[in-house]
Design a protein around this nucleic acid. Structure first.
Ligand SMILES: [Mn+2]
Ligand SMILES: [Mn+2]
Ligand SMILES: [Zn+2]
Ligand SMILES: [Zn+2]
Lengths: 142, 142
DNA sequence: TATATTCTGAGACTCATTCTCAATAAGAAA
DNA sequence: TTTCTTATTGAGAATGAGTCTCAGAATATA
């Protein structure tokens, strides 16, 4: 019965126990499609009755990232951000350098070009980071 | 006579004084084409007779980055890396996830595709980060 | 030379993240 | 269920890159 539950499946695979805390971290990450940092996840869970520590939030996120349920983003502002990968396809990000707003983009031309570049070097692409920094409409002073 | 010296020109423009310490940081950054962190720059200068503090290394690098003489890179390993931009054209990086080796690439197709993506959103591209993580030949176990 | 201003270095500080370890909870076994 | 073993948790200490402070040193200006 646990095989359809991605959290339980991942924990079993890792030889880890299922706990309320781990469930709450995963639930909170899935609650929005935002790109939030660990503190935001921590505070959101604290809003509810459940008690979770920062350490547990970080530790659980690590498991989720390792099992490809969550993506970790480094947007250059000194703290990692996370987004769940439930029924999400690969995409990269546009970031407003003024307000931090994040938008997503996909471009097949770039994706295949990346593979080609790496192939020309004789390597294999493991992963990539592609971020476009812009100034969004609200932040543009006319 | 100072107008041909990029350091003196930048310092003048910023209303800052020319000092031995600032010269040494710039010299050390130009000494190699590597992508080094602040500690490496600091230690390299210390190898010579000149005394420089970490604070001054960081402060000087900030001035150089602001004046586009040096590029700051965030390769995801927790500390910033720097490369001088003397007679260097724009490029992005391939990084070995095993040994950290860095190689450079340029791709005009990707560069123009980026502009197009951003234009479709109605924005203007300020800067971008594009990193391809691979496993290099030496790190590949056959 | 005298005076005003900027720079510098040592080390304190910040802040996200990781670590420690005693108390607690999960789950296997009985 | 109760017991027993082991993993998990939380509080706060530790870490580490980078920043800040401030008194003394250096530089520019008069
Ligand atoms: Mn996203
Ligand atoms: Mn480079
Ligand atoms: Zn904005
Ligand atoms: Zn390698």
């Amino acid at each position: 019965m646990a095989s359809t539950d991605p959290l339980k499946r991942a924990l079993k695979k890792e030889g880890l126990r299922y706990t309320q805390q781990r469930q709450s971290v995963w639930d909170e990450l899935c609650a929005t499609d935002d790109h939030r940092d660990a503190e935001e996840i921590y505070l959101a869970i604290r809003q509810s009755e459940l008690h979770v520590s920062r350490a547990t939030v970080y530790r659980t996120i690590d498991v989720l990232v390792k099992n490809k349920m969550v993506r970790k983003l480094d947007l250059g502002d000194g703290r990692a951000r996370y987004e769940h990968k439930m029924n999400a396809t690969h995409h990269d990000h546009l970031i407003c350098i003024q307000c931090g707003k994040i938008e997503e983009f996909v471009d097949e031309v770039i994706e295949s070009r990346q593979d080609e570049i790496v192939k020309n070097f004789g390597y294999k692409l493991v992963r990539h980071i592609h971020q476009l920094f812009i100034i969004c409409d609200e932040c543009k002073t006319p």
